[in-house]
């Protein structure tokens, strides 16, 4: 197990570094921020001076290594446009996006567990189909559109919830639903399949034969086992949600990492984008790593598979 874990951790680190190297290179192709910084009338000397100041005149490999070296110590430099510490900007916004992601995940799980259990209890019936349809809608609806529907219903018509911003808990409800609904089908299908497996197993038959009540069989014995793989799926989905939040944060005017990423890309604010790519990929890789290790801990076959 230790060797497996070590191998996975090293692989994860490598993935994170590769991703940020690619991001660094791609950004480099997209244009020269100095001209935008220097203004309309800047002379070539000024542009050159700014280039030196920000280090844009050095070879790209060198730029990357020096950036990575500082990044490891938590120094991501300063935003070109806001002139503030990038680390501070990210630190400011990370809790917002995390809160959104966790709430969205919570919503997805709360919705998909009952649906999955119901579907497993009555496979291939109307109940099963209905549960599947409800969850499939989540995947089929573009989430920005679904978000607007939510705004119209709960923000405008019923006036139960605030429409945009992130100043209170209530502000996160609509975006969390819009973001989490998308992940519902994956959870629901997994729970359905696991439940069906578990329900067909010998120990459940034994439990039933012992005369335990249906609810006790379902929730104490079956669901508890069926839900284990959900934990690792949740870790991966949380990673996806960090990425998906780019659009949702735009629609609901939430000032999280997603919005910051979008704005920084359109402004070519290099230091911010580079730091964000690194941070998000580290989080994503970290979550995937957790999922892998969890899976391996649960199912020993995976440890020896490769």
């Amino acid at each position: 197990m230790a060797a497996f874990a070590l191998r996975r951790v090293l692989l994860a680190a490598l993935v994170a570094i590769t991703v940020s190297a690619i991001a660094f290179g791609l950004l480099y192709l997209s244009g020269d921020p100095v001209r935008a910084l220097a203004g309309e009338n800047a002379t070539d000397e000024v542009i050159q001076r700014l280039s030196q100041e920000y280090g844009f005149d050095r070879p790209i490999g060198e730029q990357f290594l020096s950036w990575l070296g500082k990044a490891v110590t938590g120094d991501f430099g300063k935003s070109i446009y806001f002139n503030t510490d990038v680390a501070e900007m990210i630190w400011d916004r990370l809790p917002i996006t995390m809160a959104l992601g966790v709430m969205a995940l919570g919503f997805a799980i709360c919705l998909s567990i009952p649906l999955g259990v119901l579907a497993a209890l009555r496979p291939n019936t109307f109940v099963d189909k209905a549960a599947l349809t409800i969850s499939l809608f989540g995947q089929a609806l573009p989430n920005f559109w679904f978000a607007i529907l939510l705004i119209i219903l709960f923000g405008l018509t019923l006036r139960w919830l605030p429409i945009s911003g992130n100043s209170s808990f209530a502000h996160f409800i609509l975006p969390a639903v819009a973001l989490g609904y998308y992940a519902t089908p994956a959870f629901m299908r997994l729970i359905r399949a696991e439940m069906m497996d578990v329900l067909a197993s010998d120990y459940i038959r034994t439990a039933r034969a012992k005369g335990l009540s249906t609810s006790s069989v379902l929730f104490k014995h079956a669901l508890r086992n069926a839900i284990i793989p959900v934990v690792s799926l949740a870790a991966v989905q949380l990673g996806f949600m960090l990425g998906g939040s780019v659009i949702i944060e735009q629609v609901f005017a939430i000032k999280g990492l997603g919005a910051l990423a979008w704005e920084s890309i359109s402004r070519s604010d290099y230091p911010v984008v580079q730091a964000l790519v690194l941070v998000i990929s580290v989080i994503y890789v970290g979550l995937t790593l957790c999922a892998d290790l969890l899976n391996a801990a649960i199912d020993p076959r995976l440890r020896h598979g490769h």
Partner: peptide, 18 residues
């Protein structure tokens, strides 16, 4: 002043009095 990037959201806020 608040920054709201999406104009649909702005309209919804305007209509709801936000």
């Amino acid at each position: 002043q608040r920054t709201i990037p999406d104009s649909n959201t702005q309209v919804a806020e305007l209509l709801s009095g936000g």
